[in-house]
Design a protein around this nucleic acid. Sequence first.
DNA 1: CATGAATGAGAATTCATTCAT
DNA 2: CATGAATGAATTCTCATTCAT
Lengths: 206, 206, 206, 206
Amino acid sequence: MPKLGMPEIRKPQLIDATLEVIGEVGLGKTTVAMISKRAGVSAGIINHYFGGKDGLLNQSMRTILRELNDGVRERREALPADWPIERVRAIVGGNFDSRQLDPRVMKTWLAFWAQAMHDEELARLQRVNEKRLLSHLRYELRKCLSREQAREVATGIAALIDGIWLRGALSGGVEQAEAVKLIDSFIRGQLGLWHSTSRVQIASNY
Amino acid sequence: MPKLGMPEIRKPQLIDATLEVIGEVGLGKTTVAMISKRAGVSAGIINHYFGGKDGLLNQSMRTILRELNDGVRERREALPADWPIERVRAIVGGNFDSRQLDPRVMKTWLAFWAQAMHDEELARLQRVNEKRLLSHLRYELRKCLSREQAREVATGIAALIDGIWLRGALSGGVEQAEAVKLIDSFIRGQLGLWHSTSRVQIASNY
Amino acid sequence: MPKLGMPEIRKPQLIDATLEVIGEVGLGKTTVAMISKRAGVSAGIINHYFGGKDGLLNQSMRTILRELNDGVRERREALPADWPIERVRAIVGGNFDSRQLDPRVMKTWLAFWAQAMHDEELARLQRVNEKRLLSHLRYELRKCLSREQAREVATGIAALIDGIWLRGALSGGVEQAEAVKLIDSFIRGQLGLWHSTSRVQIASNY
Amino acid sequence: MPKLGMPEIRKPQLIDATLEVIGEVGLGKTTVAMISKRAGVSAGIINHYFGGKDGLLNQSMRTILRELNDGVRERREALPADWPIERVRAIVGGNFDSRQLDPRVMKTWLAFWAQAMHDEELARLQRVNEKRLLSHLRYELRKCLSREQAREVATGIAALIDGIWLRGALSGGVEQAEAVKLIDSFIRGQLGLWHSTSRVQIASNY
DNA sequence: CATGAATGAGAATTCATTCAT
DNA sequence: CATGAATGAATTCTCATTCAT
């Protein structure tokens, strides 16, 4: 019998190598030769495990999406359900945690985003993710805002997250603290618009 | 009136074709053969006029950047200098005018953005543009806010512009009215944070 | 009764799978992976039992040659030695029995034939077979014809067998009855040429 | 302007090289690298002119089919329409002229034949050809035989042509004279079956 | 100016075979 | 015995670029 459990070793190994290479040279210049060399295996093995370059890229995409989702969920669920604003801040923070701010990861995200414009499979994955972010934000905001207000603020937060992230990707980096501060400020502004005397408890470190 | 030389005919012709093809198949699958066929000329001519594929892509990038800037400037300058908030809204509107919301243009933008991650020449162009947007916003906001406040609000607006745009690119489209409304709401919220009794004149259609 | 070793199980299993796959996708597209999958075993086992793909193909070839020969011999020997024309007809019938007319078998034959043009080992096998067919025909015909006449008629019958078979392979099928009828007609014509008043007994169902 | 008329030079050049290589190493071992090297051009040019290996093989097939047809037609039409048997013999001769008996051409034919079993495009071409041969034979035989008789004799001649050819391909060669003699014999035998006192004029060199 | 023929480097993919388990 | 992981050579196809006309 051949070595058992190799798929569980090789697949993550190849996906990691893929993300590294994309982060370094860009999706357009990434070749299976580079990836396999980085992973320390032969090029042919990619077809063995992923059916081809496309399959590997697809799985890589799913992996970073899942990592993002897992990180955000952990942060959010670590807080009580009756602290909605804190939970929103946790969601924001999760989108800017150190793993996501790794320049190579940011480059990979952008590459996949551009790719998704012309690849329905990737586009679908991205849309699901976008909807999930929005949905979680709305759910928490609903605890202290009207349906319409929650919808609008959630949309704004989501846009700020992506916008800060995108501008950061271009200019060389994002400061998590800066990002969280800006979004906090947006939330306070929005809450203020509707609650001149807001009773929502906002953490003192705002 | 000088007679137009071939360069003045061929270059825009090829740049238009480039943007169309990128919008349709993506930067990664765009070939000079496709571009030249679309433009109705031979493949070799691209090297003649642009020195190669890279030169053509670079010029194409500069073209859409210039179009965006020109559009934004026209809208901004059409308003009095002492209507800063209106001018900010004009800047926002310019970033979401119909030309920029053409799906093919959005795809091209995203493609160039991803490409810029690994191409210093493109990255420089993008950074210059980002700085210009921020600078204009700050300049107008300075007329009714402190330096620090202006900086922060400008950063937020820029992030919202890019974030709304990015999410729209993915989900299939952006509604200009929605975008402007969201950013208006942000501005009002931010102004409210600092001026509980704001004296800034905000257009009545807010 | 000796217990069957694995070789006696595996070899026919793999040869059958080989013929099936060749019949379905053609020799050129047949891979060991396909064959082993069809046989329900691993790819590596082919080298274990046949020393490689070539060995398996060679054995497969020998198998269908043997099947054809066995079938023809059985039919021929089932008839009395002093019914030469009936024996000739039995040889013809054997070449068009249902096993040989299976479209997958016909495709395999043709594939091996083409392959034999460039593979001396296969060519040798085929030549032996061709000679055997001719030899049997001549042997029977010699009982009622001169050496020269027997040689010529045998050559014609062999050519007709292969020609009918080849044309049938292309056009989608052969009718055994049609084939036998045509060759009968040829034999009668040939006999008639030399024996205006032939004394050879030809079966009444001619 | 580039060199004009290159397609008319390159295409036959590449097709010739293809037939030569297939004739030498077999279809299965033929690579575009071999073909282009033989033709003295680069491998890429094959895609330029034929869209890929398949296109080249297809065109090569069409070429040898056309050559055979042209040769047969010329021979047939060189004889008076009221010499049907002579015309039939011309058709037979055309199928065994020196060009068709070149071992490389025979190998190519056989390769294509096997390939056609799994390639509908090739199969269609072959069927058209088979039908044409049969049709011409029937047309000529109709001039001296009944419809049914003409059909049967034509079928037999066609089978003999292919069978002799196939057996020759395997055993290393065909003698045109032998082939024609055998088929002549068949024709005479068949004519004799129906016309005990045949009035059909058969050339004296029979 | 413009063409498109031609090149050649590079990329993905295929696949028979080997071999540790 | 048997597996299937792994390899690496071979092959097809792509494509930017060059260049003779």
